[in-house]
Structures are given as C-alpha cells and as structure tokens.
Design a binder for these strands. Structure first.
Lengths: 152, 152
DNA sequence: CTGTCTGCAAACTTTTTGCATATAG
DNA sequence: CTATATGCAAAAAGTTTGCAGACAG
C-alpha cells in the first residue's frame, strides 16, 4: 500500500476549524486534538484529560513536544470553542465534548463522567450514582460589569 | 469599663463546635473564622475569601500567623462543615455560608456571588446578570466506587 | 518572507509537607 | 503531661512567561 499522507481527511477539517479562528494548523495542535479523539473512541463519556495526560500521550507521536506548547494549545483550543475545561480540585480537566452537558465527579476515583441534562436527578440514582453534593456555577457578567463598570 | 475578656460569647459557641468535632479551639482558628464573620457583615452575599485574603486579614490580629496554619485551618473547617469551598480558575474561594446555595462568578471581576436556588433562571436576568455558561458539577460516588470497586 | 508558534528553562502561584516548638485540654 | 496544633522553610504541583529559533501560510 502507498505511504499514508501526513494529514488525514479529519485533519483537514480540523485545520479549517483552526484557520477559521485565525489559528495556524500545526502538527502539535493536530496531535493534541487527536488525543481527545482517541480517548473519546475508547469511552466517549469519560474522555476527560489533564494537561499532563495529553502531554504524555501526544509525546508518543511528537517526542520533542513541550509542556508549554500543550498548555498553550489547550488554552487556545478552549478559547476557540473546540475544547471545554472543567475546573475543580486538582488539575484542569479538558473535554472534547463541547455540547451542553454537565459532569459528575466521583469522590473516590476523581474521574469525571458526562451527565446529560435529561439525566440529572431523574435517573441518576437508578444508575447507581450516589450524589453527595451538587454545585451549580454560573459564569457570565454580573450587573456591575455588564453595565460597563469594569472590575472593582 | 472593665477590660474585654479574651473570648467573646460567640467564640465560646465556635469553640464548642470545634470541640464537638475533635478539634481544639485555638486562637488561630477563632481569628480565621472571625474573618468570615466580618466579611459577611460587610456584604453577606459576597463573603468569599481566598486563603491569602484570610491570611492577610487574620495577620492583623495575629502577627505571627503563618500561611501553613491558614491552609490547615481552612481545610479543617471545611471538613468540619463550618466553611465551604468553591473551586474554579485560580485560588480556592472559602465561604462561611454553608446553607445550600449556588454561585455566580463574574467573567470580568471574577468575584463570586451567592445565588439562592429560587433565584436561578427565574430572576437572574431581571437582576442584570448575563449568564454565559452554567455548569453543574455533581459530586459523590460513581456506580463502580459505590459498589466497592475502589479507584480504577 | 513574516508573523505566529514552538521548545526550553526559569519563574510564578497556590498548596502541601517535615520537623522542632508551643499550647489546649 | 501529652497529643494536637503551630511556625518556619522548603518543596511540590500546576501553570505561565520570555526569548531565540522554527515553520505555516
């Protein structure tokens, strides 16, 4: 068989997404993003990765990759809307699922699981989850800032 | 007037709360907790403090106080259920309001505001908040851990 | 070519830890 | 008295930054 091209069709789509947002399609960004595709294909509702995990997995394909580039790229992809972040105790968790969904964090293993809106409270207990705490964090602009007052 | 006693009536109540949980009532813990009382009296729905702010304010009364003690004490008070923590981008935010309430973080100034359950979605926009993102983080035990499988 | 992106290393911020001393009960 | 808690200082963990060179467009 002929040698596989350096860019797959999926990569081309990703490149266009980047270009559309003024970002260049570098090998690093492609590999970093592909780590999430691989994680999602293993377990779509569990594909939450820390920067360090992304670094370790991407490094297999790009041995010279640096952590700084991973942090930079993850931040850019989040700003571009291609990834989401979940903040909590410990490192940030990045998520390629950018549809509107919520998370369940296990108090024991710390892993995040996607929770569909419809699932919340309805079937959660049926599924065996023991909800100890639920916290809603709303982000946006407070009345002062929305009115243009700026930061205190 | 006679010199004020070292412990106020309120302190005695706090001391009992600590003792009830096997914690000793030290001057440091009393002062640290009192910082929240002072913050709440200034603006009850805005009394969210970072460890560093607690340290700076408590240091006025206890010049020899160390950051380690602040972090230790805050952690103990959270475990004891006397304080709550809100995790997010940046430092942890501690909160003496341990009733069931949610938070709104302003994207501009970063400050947290308490949001009563009843307020959510109902009067939020009327109050001038522009909600950009809402994220529900549920914590507890996932089916595997609840079944005793332990961490992966 | 030109400006963006990368790698490196060092700095920074937030939090934790080890150990000797102080203190609450 | 004795275990718990403190202060100090150093380290850890996670993330950000400055700068010289590499590479996408």
């Amino acid at each position: 068989m002929p040698p596989r091209p350096a860019s797959t069709p999926a990569d081309l789509g990703f490149a266009q997404l980047l270009r559309a947002r003024g970002l260049r399609a570098t090998a690093q960004r492609r590999v970093i993003y592909s780590v999430f595709a691989r994680a999602a294909s293993a377990d779509a509702s569990n594909a939450h990765l820390e920067a360090e995990e992304v670094f370790q997995q991407a490094r297999v394909q790009l041995p010279d990759l640096s952590r700084a580039t991973v942090y930079n790229s993850l931040g850019e992809l989040v700003e571009a809307g291609l990834l989401g972040v979940v903040e909590g105790p410990g490192p940030q968790q990045f998520d390629a699922n950018v549809t509107n969904h919520h998370h369940f964090r296990c108090a024991l293993c710390g892993k995040l699981r996607d929770i569909d809106l419809e699932q919340v409270d309805v079937t959660l207990r049926e599924q065996g989850f023991e909800v100890e705490r639920a916290h809603v964090l709303l982000e946006g602009l407070c009345p002062q800032c929305a009115a243009g007052a700026g930061a205190a």
